[in-house]
Amino acid sequence: MAKSLAQEFAKGLWEEIPPFRLVLGLCPVLAVTKTVENGIGMGLATTFVLVCSNMLVSMLRKIIPSKVRIACFIIIIATFVTVVELLMQAFAYPLFLKLGIFIPLIVVNCIVLGRSEAFASKNGVVRSIADGLGMGIGFTISLGCLGAVRELFGNGTLTFWETPIQIFGPSFQPFAFMVEAPGAFVCLGLMLCLMNLAGSK
């Protein structure tokens, strides 16, 4: 327990940044990163669930019997996912429609359950919140970067607040491969390779 609060927070940003260092929760990463906006929206929704569920799990960690802990964690997570779902329907409906099935699927995002199991069930409330926040922000950054790369090469635009900004000139030929399913896999693989390169020096 030598790590300070700031370190717990910061490890989610580079050392253990999901989904690159912890290969968990790949499905939303691949599916919603067609544009930057979707990626960041998904990241923020996941961050909210992560922080809240980490907080509640850590508060209840002495009460929950260890035999049924996974079931308890899932119920807690599912509750917060429902909260996010309803909030987004009320305040961010266009984004909700775009993310579609992947909002309810945050329940089975392994990062959320993984952090509850590996961190929040063993640490105090404040630490768990810091961990959740760090992981969530790391996840959002990853999704944002991947979304930016895919959208930039696939469409030649970057979208913020519903308005696509044209980055390349009119002579740019969109590289449609990038916004399709195969592009997601290849792009994530290459980004992981770049991170390995940067980390090895």
């Binding site: 290969v23 399913a181 997601a184 693989g189 390995n196 090895s200």
Partner: peptide, 22 residues
């Protein structure tokens, strides 16, 4: 190549496999 090993190359393979399913 070293930086591509393990998960990284696996993702690229998955991409190619996905392309064939296209």
């Amino acid at each position: 190549p070293k930086p591509l090993q393990d998960t990284s190359i696996a993702l690229v393979i998955a991409g190619i496999l996905s392309l064939t399913f296209f």
